[in-house]
């Protein structure tokens, strides 16, 4: 049975509180994992495991996060920014990114700003779709 987006949000919130030691009022829809919630790259391994367990899903590598081939491919990155093609690749790979975050990123597609796409809402979008599949 599919679970509602609201319910997914509540459970994702619990996962992030446990994994990152943050307070529940910090886990907002638009909060970024690295910027706002202080996640480090290593925390993503933990978060992925916790999400898999909580929702009984499998999260294959590169599905939740940007694809591995993006950052080191000259076709996709030029002077530290995503090219038109790179941006398209990112959008195709991350349909669960929040629209407002993606629009903001498109204005200045600096790869250093890519972590800003990792918001609580993005995870909720991804899990809601995955749990319904």
């Amino acid at each position: 049975m599919a679970i509602s987006r609201d319910e997914v949000f509540e459970r994702v919130k619990e996962v992030l509180i446990d994994a990152l030691g943050v307070d529940d009022d910090e886990v907002l829809e638009g909060a970024t994992l690295m910027g706002d919630l202080g996640a480090e790259s290593i925390d993503f391994l933990d978060i992925v495991f916790r999400l898999e367990k909580t929702f009984s899903i499998k999260i294959p590598r590169g599905e939740l996060s940007p694809p591995d081939d993006l950052q080191n491919n000259p076709e996709y990155v030029e002077s530290g920014k995503l090219t038109e093609k790179g941006l398209q690749r990112l959008k195709d790979a991350m349909p669960h990114a929040r629209d407002e975050d993606m629009k903001k990123f498109e204005e200045d597609p600096d790869i250093a700003k890519m972590p800003d796409l990792f918001s609580v809402g993005m995870i909720v979008n991804y899990v809601t779709k995955k749990a319904a599949a």
Binding site: L45, D46, V48, F49, E52, K53, R61
Partner: peptide
């Protein structure tokens, strides 16, 4: 072992 994947284990 609780979980194991190609990238990590818990």
């Amino acid at each position: 072992i609780e979980q194991v994947s190609p990238e990590a284990a818990s």
